[in-house]
Nucleic acid binder design. Structure first.
Lengths: 235, 235
DNA sequence: CAATAATACTTGTACGTACGAGTATTATTT
DNA sequence: AAATAATACTCGTACGTACAAGTATTATTG
């Protein structure tokens, strides 16, 4: 269970930054200084720093040093909080399919992990209304491996994420998304009560969670003519 | 005008991949083979391959080799860093209108501050290409009040945000966005070389900066059929 | 014939050295 | 005093060597 040297240095420096021992704008020790402090060669010191730069913790400056960067952890397009908190008040949700066993559908746009493919797939599908207007069709796939009793109980306060957090102590730690403008196909058009050929905003999301065995794959189809999808953030 | 060796190798291999001399799934020459072919050391060969891996052209496999990967690029637009850093290398930018005096257009979707409305409006408009495909039409409005000499000089490294940062020491501190799926109208369709009626992803952004007198309003029109707009984040 | 061992590859880590190039300070010259 | 040169730092590139560790093939063993 031995760690490599450069990872050791890398983690040490990362910890120092996260604990605030190096503030934004500060310079880390130079490569040569790391060499003598940790009894390593410059090759190893460089590798540790290069990794930090790749994770955008620091910024390397030729002739100057490695400066701690402002870290923008931010901006999931849909914030992680989910739909309910993003839009106003009068939201209704209609389950088209309650959570049940499903299959890893080819409709999922983002690459599905192998470990997920080899485990049971759970699926549910909802439509979100603002007032009486359907605005979003939401399809969700995830592994049921780590969620015992999931199918037997209702969502807490109607929220999937809240259920994960409060019942299973699983948090969202990241996401990747892809956005596409598409024309509504027959089926989705019908569900969203728009004409075929209406432009829809198609959002594909893959959520990573604090449980490495649970990833959530969502395909969202949004009618944006009246209610555009929005978000904002400030550092 | 001398290029570094590893970049030379890197570009050579990249070209080979892009021309199809190495197909998806193929293995590139091993590090040792590159050494003898190009009369370099393994350090240099590794660096070239590591760069390719970072750009996700290849996948390195311990004990096996470097395999050409399926390249699913997406335009990581929505992080604050802007366009240039988000996508890979082969981006071109064409100015339709160089920065010049403009007016606070009604095309701006997000509410314009009163203070902005009362000051001079600067405007520029560009098209972004990936390869030779136009993928985004970008329109930008902002107040010229706090940017002396802005019209006289070129962008630093072609980047608006870098120019703001390095020349004026102004940083982006927040943004709000709205997303819409729309059908391409005649003018935009022509510029992006798509048919009218093609669905476009319309992103409206308002950036707030560290200088309270400078807000940037952008309207982006993206062709997402080939290159979806993407982002990801982890906490 | 099947399981195992040896082998020849691959990439990964780490050592050490050398010089080039960018940056900032200090010393020198004008 | 101001411009210039020397310097001492930074990081970037590139050389060369060595061994560890993963993968696949071949040879050996039982």
């Amino acid at each position: 269970m031995k760690e490599t040297k450069y990872k050791e240095i890398h983690n040490h420096l990362k910890g120092q930054i996260q604990q605030g021992n190096y503030q934004i704008g500060d310079y880390l020790p130079s490569e040569n200084e790391l060499c003598v402090r940790f009894s390593i060669t410059r090759t190893t010191a460089r590798k540790a720093l290069d990794e930090l730069a790749k994770e955008s913790f620091i910024e390397r400056q030729h002739g100057k040093g490695s400066r701690v960067k402002e870290r923008r952890q931010s901006l999931g397009l849909l914030n992680v909080k989910g739909f309910s908190e993003a839009v106003g008040e009068d939201i209704k949700t209609l389950f088209l399919r309650k959570p049940a066993a499903g299959k890893w559908d080819s409709e999922i746009m983002l690459p599905v992990n192998d470990s997920d493919l080899n485990s049971i797939c759970l699926y549910f599908e909802r439509i979100r209304f603002v007032g009486n207007e359907p605005v979003m069709l939401e399809k969700n796939w995830f592994s049921g491996q780590v969620l015992p009793d999931f199918l037997c109980s209702e969502f807490i306060e109607g929220s999937f994420f809240k259920t994960l957090s409060k019942k299973y102590f699983i948090e969202i730690i990241g996401s990747s998304q892809e956005l596409r403008a598409e024309l509504a196909c027959g089926k989705n058009a019908g569900l969203l009560k728009v004409k075929t050929g209406t432009p829809l905003l198609h959002i594909s999301v893959k959520f990573s969670t604090s449980n490495s065995k649970l990833n959530i794959y969502s395909e969202l189809y949004c009618v944006t003519s009246v209610y555009p999808v929005g978000n904002s953030y400030f550092i």
